[in-house]
Design a protein around this nucleic acid. Structure first.
Length: 153
DNA sequence: GCCAACGTTGGC
DNA sequence: GCCAACGTTGGC
């Protein structure tokens, strides 16, 4: 049974349109540098899991499309690249610290704004809406997924 | 730019 | 292992 996730991306880094324009409509989810989110990818995600693609840190934050997990977790190559913003001097290929999964577009949706999400009672318990939430990857319950499916249809 | 929230770091 | 300082996130 697939799980459901919400993954935040800054549109300036990778927007839903960037995802749609990528080869195979698939991107490696580079740049996660938070242990909880890394562990979620490593331990909890599985190929085929559903993903809500969320635009954060932008003028209109909200869900912009549906995607899916398209690979198992593997080392994030940017941690080894001194030229990368995501370089981590303490990581080595033999002892990688950061992992990622590939994410593939399922379909772009209308933008379901953060404000609309907050106004939807059935979504009130979503992890991403919790005060002070800063995780870039959060779980979505089956019920929440169903409600969102209706709102995004 | 502000600031609340909270994860991470490092001294002890 | 505690905890204060610091850095980052992200909405506003």
């Amino acid at each position: 049974m697939p799980r459901h996730w919400l993954m935040k991306s800054e549109p300036g880094e990778c927007s839903i349109d960037d995802l749609a324009a990528a080869p195979q409509c698939t991107v490696p989810w580079v740049g996660v540098r938070n242990y909880q989110s890394r562990n979620a990818m490593r331990d909890l995600m599985a190929l085929g899991d559903d993903v809500l693609f969320y635009h954060s840190s932008c003028a209109e934050p909200g869900i912009a499309g549906l995607a899916c997990v398209a690979s198992p977790a593997y080392p994030d190559p940017t941690q080894f690249d001194p030229a990368s913003h995501y370089f981590d001097a303490k990581a080595t290929p033999l002892a990688p610290r950061w992992l990622l999964v590939d994410v593939r577009l399922v379909r772009k949706t209308r933008l379901l704004g953060l404000h609309s999400m907050r106004q939807t009672v059935a979504l009130a318990d979503m992890a991403v809406l919790r005060r002070g939430n800063r995780l870039s990857i959060t779980p979505v319950s089956a019920l929440q997924w169903q409600v969102l499916g209706g709102l995004l249809a």
